[in-house]
């Protein structure tokens, strides 16, 4: 399906939850609300004509002025060979989003990475631990307001290791 057909199909099936539909550099871009997000994602993967079975990338953007974090999913269908950009925004104070790792297993590590570096909680994720940074690390460095105080960090970290809180 081309972008127009995709747009048509989404408009037909989903009314309220769609925030915006617009063409982007990577094909059709859909922005949805967090409420319908999980249902929408499941429909995208399951519907015969959509069948977005391949999650290419999961990114997060910290829009600090809007006080929102945007989670971006780049989807691809191996059968129909069409692309889709799925965006969803969550409040920065309490960034929570249902996991999609049960739909696309790729999301498992991508969501762990997003949690680690951006602090987005993916509800229902089977194993939401930090991926790159050590356990016991405080803060999420990819956020725009993160300040890394290297001396304080080192001291606190050494203290934690000494107390045996970090293996």
């Amino acid at each position: 399906m081309n972008d127009q057909e995709l747009e048509q199909k989404i408009k037909e099936n989903w009314g309220d939850g769609i925030v915006s539909l617009r063409p982007s550099l990577n094909g059709l871009e859909v922005r949805v609300t967090p409420n319908i997000f999980k249902e929408f994602a499941r429909w995208l993967a399951a519907d015969q004509e959509m069948e977005f079975n391949y999650l290419r990338c999961l990114s997060t953007v910290d829009w600090v002025q809007e006080q929102e974090i945007e989670v971006v999913y780049h989807l691809f269908s191996l059968r129909h060979r069409h692309h889709l950009v799925l965006k969803v925004r969550v409040p920065r104070k309490e960034p929570q989003l249902p996991t999609v790792s049960d739909i696309w297993a790729t999301a498992n590590w991508h969501e762990r990475e997003a949690y680690d570096l951006m602090g987005v909680f993916f509800v229902g994720h089977p194993d939401l631990r930090r991926l790159f940074l050590p356990p016991g690390f405080e803060g999420h460095p990819l956020r725009k307001d993160y300040i890394h105080d290297i001396e304080r960090f080192d001291d606190e970290f050494a203290e934690k290791i000494r107390r045996g809180e970090i293996q």
């Binding site: 990577n26 990338c57 780049h74």
Partner: peptide, 20 residues
Amino acid sequence: PNDVYVAIESPRGELGVYMV
């Protein structure tokens, strides 16, 4: 202001960059 996801076929597979 825009955003783009670009991917190429690197020897290991799909190497992508999402740039805003």
